[in-house]
C-alpha cells in the first residue's frame, strides 16, 4: 500500500480493510455464544467459541496484511 504509483498520493484505503470489521464485531455478540451446550472437549460453548474467534482474528488480519502490503 505504500508502493503507490509515482505521483499518486499514498493511502491506506482498501476494500480489504472491511474484513477487519468481522473479528471486531463477532466477539461482542454475546447471544452467539452465551450457552453451555454444545460442549467441545468438555468446554462449554461460551468458552470454546470465543477461543475460536482468535482464529477468525488471525485469518482476517493476515489476509488484510497480505493483500495491502
Amino acid at each position: 500500500m505504500t508502493t503507490g504509483e509515482p505521483g499518486q498520493p499514498r493511502t491506506d484505503r482498501s476494500p480489504w480493510n472491511w474484513l477487519l470489521v468481522l473479528p471486531i464485531v463477532l466477539p461482542l455478540l454475546t447471544f452467539l455464544f452465551n450457552a453451555d451446550e454444545p460442549r467441545l472437549f468438555g468446554f462449554p460453548l461460551f468458552y470454546w467459541l470465543q477461543i475460536a474467534f482468535i482464529v477468525v482474528g488471525v485469518v482476517s488480519t493476515t489476509i488484510v496484511y497480505r493483500m495491502t502490503k
Binding site: D12, N17, L20, V21, L22, P23, I24, P27, L28, F46, Y47, Q50, I51, F53, I54, V56, G57, S60, T61, V64
Partner: peptide, 17 residues
C-alpha cells in the same frame, strides 16, 4: 472475568490501521 479474551481478540484488528 473471561472478558479478557474477547478484549484481546478485538484489539488487534481495531488498531491495525
Amino acid at each position: 472475568g473471561f472478558y479478557a479474551l474477547p478484549y484481546t481478540v478485538v484489539v488487534y484488528p481495531l488498531v491495525f490501521l
